[in-house]
């Protein structure tokens, strides 16, 4: 079943064309990796999928619902089922870790204080973040901030998660922690799109990889096919032949 369908997506910033004609589909429970050079517009695709960026043209359907034409207040329901994991975590720096995690629960659930507290402490334990609930984001390491950001995004159990370079700049320990979390979420049936330059993680978590080049999806293939076929365009991109 197709969960995300992007058709003829186009976007310009000023005079610069970012997307000419982006087309792809993501299936239920699948993780699609988006690869491409810096400035190729991978993050813009993710932002468009949740309505943070308005495309100039084309169509985006989330579970069959068109979102491009939706106004900000109409996107709230979409954003409850599609979570966005920001590259830097984007934690609210005026709130401690507990309040950051409580924010979506207070906004979108009817849980009481005790239930919220239980949910948060369970998640902190799952993410290896025990003892950080009273800590402010500025006191956390980059890796911990990303893990808290990821925890905050999935705390209301969205159906789809969009990852924007969640492992960029992380040490191997934090990278593996995030990989494990994404694999666990996948096992629970979550659909995701994963923007990254981190190839080992992409190969570990993604089912298919798509290459964004010159404003289009230049190639889409399954990870197993890419691994087999060395002449594949994505393999050539990874080896630095195409940028």
């Amino acid at each position: 079943m197709v969960v995300i369908k992007v058709k003829n997506l186009s976007k310009k910033f000023g005079g610069k064309t970012i997307h000419k004609n982006i087309n792809f589909e993501v299936f239920q429970g699948e993780c699609l990796g988006l690869l491409g050079g810096s400035g190729a517009g991978k993050s813009v695709i993710l932002r468009s999928l949740i309505g943070l960026e308005k495309p100039d043209g084309g169509s985006i359907q989330i579970e069959g619902e068109e979102i491009v034409s939706k106004e900000e207040d109409q996107l709230i329901e979409i954003r409850k089922k599609v979570a966005y994991v920001f590259q830097n975590g984007a934690l609210f720096d005026s709130m401690n870790v507990y309040d950051n995690l409580a924010y979506p629960l207070k906004e979108h659930t009817t849980l009481n204080h005790a239930e919220i507290s239980k949910e948060i402490h369970k998640l902190l334990e799952e993410f290896g973040l025990e003892g950080t609930s009273e800590v402010y984001p500025s006191e956390l390491s980059g890796g911990m901030q990303k893990r808290v950001g990821l925890a905050r995004s999935i705390i209301i159990k969205p159906k789809i998660v969009l990852f924007d370079e969640p492992t960029a700049g992380l040490d191997p320990y934090n990278t593996i922690k995030i990989q494990e979390t994404i694999i666990k979420l996948k096992q629970k049936g979550m659909t995701s799109i994963f923007v990254t330059h981190d190839m080992p993680t992409a190969f570990a978590v993604c089912d298919r990889l798509a290459l964004v080049q010159e404003g289009k999806i230049a190639c889409v293939d399954s990870v197993s096919e890419i691994k087999k076929d060395k002449s594949n365009r994505i393999n050539q991109f990874i080896s630095g032949i195409y940028i």
């Binding site: 932002r47 949740i50 309505g51 943070l52 900000e72 207040d73 996107l75 709230i76 329901e77 954003r79 409850k80 979570a83 966005y84 920001f86 830097n88 984007a90 934690l91 609210f92 720096d93 924010y103 979506p104 906004e107 979108h108 905050r152 995004s153």
Partner: peptide, 17 residues
């Protein structure tokens, strides 16, 4: 500062205004 550190985007992405 919230805008440049994507906190405003995070508020929107979390389904709030």
């Amino acid at each position: 500062s919230m805008k440049v550190s994507q906190q405003i985007d995070a508020i929107r992405a979390l389904g709030t205004s």
